[in-house]
């Protein structure tokens, strides 16, 4: 091969251009494969940072773009029902069961769980810390008419809280029960300002515990576990859903490797989620 400086340069440019073209094509072909996947999830999941930790890898490996819409559980499921998203990831078993039974969603899969904690003022006016179960703890809060801030927004956490009150045999609302209808972080702030008890998921609690004047009053009870499910929006109901992408994401989430990564996720040095896909 007769090589002059000029031809070397030419070759170089040509090959570079080819490579660039190939790269574009490959990205395009991947994008055509999975495209944009729309995932509705809860604010608490999103705020924990888990998705930012997990999803880029999926996007890179599959050339997909995942648009995460973080809203309350009620709204997330509503968006699924309306066909505005391709799949949902939530943590409200009863609402999820209803969602699936009514035919809005298919293929529900448990992927992980975390737990809730009851937090309250450091001086513990209701004497909750001596309680042996969450049931007893909540009964003490209502019996002493202590302030309790409820999410009141139909979120997974709110539904969990309502279920726990029912188990504790408390009739709502009692004197001191306040529904604020806001996100978990805001509810922790309000609880801190008003020195009230509240039920929070552990992720948000870990993110906020240095900013608020509260501490854990009750934790560890089995009743406080919080299972997460991922559900595909029923492709039979709407045209134009990216079910292929959603399926791939769902499969990937329950894969052994991702499950391990979920269990390895740490927030403020603490483990937040326990992967439990079967």
């Amino acid at each position: 091969m007769s090589t002059t400086k000029k031809s070397t340069l030419k070759t170089f440019i040509r090959s570079a251009a080819l490579a660039a073209l190939a790269a574009t094509v490959s990205i395009q072909s991947y994008a055509e494969d999975l495209g944009i996947v729309r995932l509705a999830t809860t604010t608490s999941t999103y705020n924990s940072g888990l998705l930012d930790y997990l999803l880029p890898e999926f996007e890179k490996a599959n050339g997909a773009t995942i648009q995460v819409i973080a809203v309350g559980t009620g709204k997330a499921l509503r968006m699924g029902r309306d066909g505005d998203v391709d799949l949902v990831m939530t943590h409200a078993p009863k609402a999820e069961a209803k969602f699936v039974n009514e035919g809005h969603g298919v293929q529900p899969r448990g992927i992980m769980y975390n737990d809730f904690v009851l937090v309250g003022p450091k001086n513990d006016p209701a004497g909750v810390k001596s309680a042996n179960s969450i049931k007893e703890a909540l009964a003490k809060v209502s019996a002493t008419q202590s302030l309790f801030i409820s999410r009141g927004d139909d979120s997974g956490t709110h539904k969990k809280e309502l279920g726990l009150w029912k188990q504790a045999g408390t009739k709502l609302p009692f004197e001191g029960y306040r529904e604020v209808g806001q996100g978990m972080g805001k509810v922790l702030q309000i609880s801190s300002e008003l020195q009230a008890y509240t039920l929070t998921d552990r992720g948000t609690w870990l993110a906020y515990k240095t900013k608020v004047d509260l501490e854990i009053a009750s934790e560890g009870d089995k009743g406080l576990f919080n299972p997460y499910q991922v559900i595909l929006v029923n492709p039979a109901k709407y045209d134009g859903l990216n079910t292929k992408g959603a399926q791939a994401l769902s499969d990937w989430l329950v894969s052994e490797e991702t499950q391990k990564r979920i269990s390895d996720f740490r927030l403020h040095g603490e483990r937040l989620f326990i992967a439990n896909a079967k």
């Binding site: 809203v71 309350g72 009620g74 709204k75 499921l77 509503r78 968006m79 009141g152 927004d153 139909d154 979120s155 209808g181 806001q182």
Partner: peptide, 12 residues
């Protein structure tokens, strides 16, 4: 207004 913001968030 805060109720509207909330109800929309709830999907109600």
């Amino acid at each position: 207004t805060t109720a509207i913001a909330l109800e929309t968030l709830k999907g109600e």
